[in-house]
Design a protein around this nucleic acid. Sequence first.
RNA 1: GGGCGCUUAGCGCAGCUGGUUUAGAGCAUCUGCCCUACAAGCAGAGGGUCGGCGGUUCGAAUCCGUCAGCGCCCACCA
Length: 873
Amino acid sequence: MDAKYNPTDIEAKWYQYWLDHKFFHSEPDGREPYTIVIPPPNVTGVLPMGHMLNNTIQDILVRRARQEGKNACWVPGTDHASIATEAKVVNKLAQQGIKKTDLSREEFLEHAWDWTREHGGIILKQLRKLGASCDWDRTGFTMDEVRSESVIKVFCDLYRKGLIYRGVRMVNWDPKALTALSDEEVIFKEHHGKLYYLRYKVEGEDKYAIVATTRPETIMGDTAMCINPNNEKTAWLKGKKVVVPLVGRVIPVIEDEYVDMEFGTGCLKVTPAHDVNDYMLGEKYNLPSIDIFNDNGTLSEAAGLYASMDRFDCREQIAKDLEAAGLMEKTEDYTNNVGFSERTNVPIEPKLSMQWFLRMEHFAQMALPPVMEDRLRFYPQKYKNTYKHWLENIKDWCISRQLWWGHRIPAWYLPEGGFIVAENEAEALRLAIEKTGNHALTAADLKQDSDCLDTWFSSWLWPISLFDGIRNPGNKEINYYYPTADLVTGPDIIFFWVARMIMAGYEYQNEMPFRNVYFTGIVRDKLGRKMSKSLGNSPDPLDLIERFGADGVRMGMMLSAPAGNDILFDESLCEQGRNFNNKIWNCFRLVKGWQTADTDQPAYARLATDWFAAKLTETAAEVEDLFKKYRLSEALMAIYKLFWDEFSSWYLEMIKPAYGQPIDRCTYELTLGYFDRLLRLLHPFMPFITEELWQNLQERKEGESIMFAAVGDIACGQADTVLLGSVEELKQIIAGVRNIRQQRNIAPKEALMLQVMGEKTLQASEEQVLVKLCNLSSIEHVGQKAAGAATFIAGVTEYAVPLDKFVNKDEELKKLQAELEHQEGFLRGVMAKLGNERFVQNAKPDIVERERQKQHDAESRIAALKESIAALG
RNA sequence: GGGCGCUUAGCGCAGCUGGUUUAGAGCAUCUGCCCUACAAGCAGAGGGUCGGCGGUUCGAAUCCGUCAGCGCCCACCA
């Protein structure tokens, strides 16, 4: 075996082994199910660091559940990502000189499918490198047959229930993607622009009303000016009419308390077609609505001479023109919030258009209580608030998109107007004939709606549709796997996805879709910046795996990723992971290199094996508890310390035979057993190296795997706390001696004598350990230590190492003085408490008792120190 | 503008219902070591008074108030 662990071949070998034996595959059986559905990544995407973290966590949970004897099922899959994928395909076609508008819907979809087949699933291949134990036989896709039919069925069902409606509303329009968006797809950003003060001439007078606006280009759509009826400053405009600058159109002055008297001049221009609030005013006062924009954000014919100009170019131009015409009072720098499209990153245009909507109050009412009552738990809990706030202020969901890549809305329009919603064309025709009584109707007379559905309208069914629970309610699989156990995802999609899955879960399964949601943090770079393609600060995960091994990368990610906290990713974390792998590897080499002999177990080895058994039990219980609380980083850290500090640095050093000597069989067997348990504990975090070493620890049969090696027995029983305590004190003594060596530069080879003061007694086994780890020539229990000995305190006992020729009295004295001061200060603190009547009266008796113990301990130490100082002086 | 959260060693964090040896691990730092498992290592050491102020209490990093800084979410002031 090489002194350095080389993960590459080993990882590939075991992943194939797991696949060959179908270890990841799950079928319903009598065991308790443990289910996770993957947050489906974009089908044509590649793996970003966020997904690495996310999927590492899922794999840890799944593997742990498997080891706990549950029927673990992790279902993978991908999302068609309607708008994102369509944009990519449009781009690709553009590079070939093909415009989307030149293609028929069918032709375009053919290109999109080609693209999907070409790039689809790359991301899932990457997950295999990471070691993800997904049931690949179950891989789903939001646009495959089962999922598509489920979406259509749900749409029809909700329409029949009256929860889906079609109507003209003000929606968020993306002028680049040329589609409506939901409110959640709009991101507000601060925009540094200008506030323009425009002069509106009062009709028939030589006076002007000044209006402040950030969007002067919309004046062509103005159909009123609005003032607050209570505003004295603008009262003079009541009942008047004003002239829209440049345009020349005369519009009325209306009054509404909506207008903020403090803002700008108190006059508001009203453009019902291009502002949500203005739209409401327009409805209220029955104002005409002039749409001056084309779908792509250029000015329309209605804008007169500015027609076909881009909206932002137009803003500049119009500002100049107003200036020239003397109609611009002034401009000011101004910062406001502007909504941007999440996908295309262009400013959203509020636009009046015909869309499909889902009523949300019904869903919000179902989805709120289980979370608030902690039946469905969020980790961390703080997201409960966010969730609550959203549900309590929810608006209807715009679910139609003017895109082709997605699930086409199953609505067919009739020649004479009106429409039919049905699961397919034949059914639509049947219903159409029934509705109209016109038996001459044919399929060709029906025109299907050209829009498709929001991507999230399929994702929200994911935990159900993956088990075909929409098409076949109550089937064996959905009954077994649903509700799923845990969902692991980012808090950024709590509204898009998490909340809506909860809604769909209650609507279609009458039950929550998952019992726990683990919100991961966002992966950032060292400087705290979000990792993104445009910044180029995201490392290539496959490259990291190549360099550090999947186990190393997994550990690196987990080391600093408590739920909900962002992680500042740094390659050095992976390095730490890799180093740990190497440590484990070398421990294995050491242990497997020993020869055994049929001799009795020496006392020191007995102490070591008893102690480590207790340590294992203690830590395993801790790990179990941390898993229950989803504190996975801490669980990993606990195992890391157990392995590196306790097992490698202490236990193995204690039992290690002298060079070339064999080890007694009993100790050896026990050690292999401990190694086995350590590997099992560690397996969920580092699946590959643990499998490799577990397989080599002893003879294994073909088809065996650490994946199914139970962990339940490790935390079994009560750890011997007395033994744990006494070994901790032993470690202190060893550290004390080593410290003396270090400070005085005494070579490890030079044997030292240890003197134990006072009443302390050491077991023979303890003395043997001390001799072994400190290289002692002898241990003496003495009343008076040798003159010029170096001393230290462990527990409440003073120890001395006689060193006459080495010791520097002054230095020694200084050290003792400092320690004495510290102890005296400590004692003062304790005495202050104990001297306080009210403390003794009010504090719980065991607290008071503990203070007395502290006092006692401190006093013994002080006595010992004083004695030493006196002896030196 | 509203809501939530954070502020503990150089760094990123843990410290739950106040009291468990005058604050804990990890990484980094410093010192000494190639001693045949591991220099991707071993041994040892240093480092914070818990953002500021005020309060409650016998006792506060831990509870309350307030100020400051940071972050996130939500929101139609043009």
